[in-house]
Design a protein around this nucleic acid. Structure first.
Length: 292
DNA sequence: CACTCTACCTGTGCGC
DNA sequence: TGCGCACAGGTAGAGT
């Protein structure tokens, strides 16, 4: 379940890693499941990508944005946009390796490697557009870089439960279920708290928690969840830990449903909102939960 | 506007 | 052993 930190790690690896995609040229395109393409036919997709050269790799929220120059250098740069959704992965492998069962898309490159989009559940999607905004127009600002003031302004425009609000990509782009729960735990706010009931210091704490959690997770190259999801080394405090003790106060962590989503929190560190108007602020000092 | 539900998918893990 | 089923979750779109 790649969220912002996992997608950022992928972008960094493909940009700066030993097997950088930059400057590599597409030699062949295999679409192994047509449904992976959004808004473009297989024929057009292949024709446009053939002989194109990777020039830039960026990210907005959970979307990966690859800039490519077409074969004739006078033609305008275009963009390959990829959303991994639930189970999508990007794999660089030797060109000689065969396709495996869940490969949906494969790009053979001129450096002897192959970029493969692998997705057992077929939720992930790929676009080919002139401008990334054609795909990302409805996204809010990126959750990793939004400043406190803009966060406060955007928050003030809503009266919503915090959990669904954090998950709303048009409000803030990049937060998924794991980091929504971890952020709310970090600042001691209950998932059902109404955004309109937050004091300005609550809002600052919430923004600080989101920023801190995401930055730590990016530094750890993503989350590491007990036997379920192991992209990187970021250790979760509440997500998937229902029935286990809270790392701060040892109260048993609870799992509920909020807006159809599994939601994990500590009932002691994140007390239920009392109808309207929240009580005073709480500040948690957490030990660094990252291990190597 | 806020919310709820459904559809899209398939591997996993449970109860029987 | 194996069957059936709930569950996981990001997003779009329809409905309340």
């Amino acid at each position: 379940m790649p969220e912002l930190p996992e997608v950022e790690s992928i972008a960094q690896a493909l940009r700066d890693g030993k097997l950088s995609l930059l400057a590599s040229c597409v030699q062949r395109v295999d679409v192994l499941w047509d449904g992976v393409l959004s808004g473009i036919s297989v024929v057009d997709f292949k024709r446009r990508l053939d002989r194109a050269v990777f020039r830039s790799i960026d990210r907005h929220g959970k979307y990966l944005l690859f800039g490519l120059d077409p074969a004739g250098s006078s033609v305008k740069r275009f963009f390959l946009v990829i959303h991994l959704r639930m189970t999508g992965r990007l794999v660089m492998s030797a060109a000689t390796d065969g396709h495996d069962r869940y490969n949906r898309l494969s790009l053979l490159l001129d450096n002897g490697t192959c970029l493969r989009f692998d997705d057992p559940r077929k939720f992930g999607r790929v676009w080919l557009v002139d401008e990334p905004s054609q795909v990302t127009a409805n996204l809010g600002p990126d959750a990793l870089t939004i400043g406190n003031e803009e966060f406060a302004v955007r928050l003030a425009a809503h009266q919503r439960q915090l959990k669904p609000l954090l998950l709303d990509q048009s409000f803030l782009a990049g937060i998924g279920n794991i980091y929504a729960d971890e952020s709310l735990f970090r600042c001691g706010l209950h998932p059902l708290t109404n955004s309109g009931d937050l004091s300005s210091s609550d809002v600052r704490r919430l923004h600080g928690a989101v920023a801190a959690v995401l930055k730590e997770a990016v530094a750890s190259q993503g989350a590491n969840i007990d036997g379920v999801f192991k992209a990187g080394r970021f250790i979760v405090n509440v997500y998937g830990r229902q029935g286990q003790p809270c790392p701060v106060c040892a109260t048993v962590i609870v799992k509920t449903r909020v807006g159809q989503r599994g939601t994990h929190f500590c009932p002691n560190c994140q007390p239920a909102p009392p109808g309207r108007r929240n009580q005073g602020s709480r500040c948690l000092t957490l030990p660094t939960m990252v291990v190597t």
